[in-house]
Structure formats: C-alpha cells, structure tokens
C-alpha cells in the first residue's frame, strides 16, 4: 500500500470513482450549456441572468462547480506527482492547487447565489 496525504480522498478507488462521476456530471452540464446556446442565438444579459436565477439551474451549476473542483484536484494532483519530483516544490504546488480550487469554488458560489 502506497500512502500519501495530499490527494483528494486518501484512496485511489474513491479518487477514481470521484473522477468518473464528476466527469459524467460535467459532460451533462456541458451538453446543457451547448444546447442552451444553440437555442438562444441572440442571447442577451437579461435572458442569461434569468436562466441562472432558476433554482434548479443554480443547484445544477453548484453541483457542476463542485464536480469540477474535485475533478481538477484529482487530475492535477496526478499530473503534479508524475512530473514534479522534488518534495518541497511538489508540496508547494499541491498547496497552491488546493487553495486555487477553494478560491474558485467560493467565488463561483458567490456569483451563483449572491445578489
């Protein structure tokens, strides 16, 4: 058993599952967005804002943001551990990654639910 502390779930299986499930969520969300743009060729801000004011859309978007955060954590953590071997730099990169994900997630929530 290879142990480690900075990955998403401390378990390869959970990480893998999270990545599969989040990928499905993100794919559905992407489909929805593409479909929406196709059906609204001359999209203006009011329509766009209205779309995002609906509760179901807010929940789905939040789910997609969380999925994206988890997906990125697992994916980029993997890339970092592949390519960055010096422990200090690797650890710093992982901290930056986690902070960045946290910031973007909070920011996303603020945009969705704020005002």
């Amino acid at each position: 058993m290879v142990t480690n502390v900075t990955n998403f779930s401390r378990s390869g299986l959970s990480d893998w599952l999270v990545q599969q499930v989040s990928a499905v969520i993100l794919a559905l969300y992407a489909l929805l967005m593409v479909g929406y743009f196709l059906f609204h060729p001359g999209l203006d801000y009011a329509t766009w804002h209205g779309f995002f004011s609906q509760t179901w859309m807010r929940i789905f978007s939040l789910l997609a943001f969380i999925a994206l955060a988890a997906h990125v954590w697992v994916g980029v953590w993997t890339v970092i551990t592949d390519y960055i071997k010096p422990i200090g730099i690797r650890f710093a990169a992982q901290i930056v990654l986690i902070l960045a994900i946290f910031v973007f997630l909070v920011w996303g929530v603020q945009i969705l639910w704020g005002a």
Binding site: M1, V2, T3, N4, N7, S11, G12, L13, D15, W16, T78, T81
Partner: peptide, 12 residues
C-alpha cells in the same frame, strides 16, 4: 485488494 487500493499502485 487492500494492498492495491491506494492512488498509485493500480490507479496510476
């Protein structure tokens, strides 16, 4: 299986 469950052994 317990020995293989971590993020590296199999999941890389």
């Amino acid at each position: 299986l317990a020995e293989l469950e971590d993020p590296f052994s199999v999941f890389r």
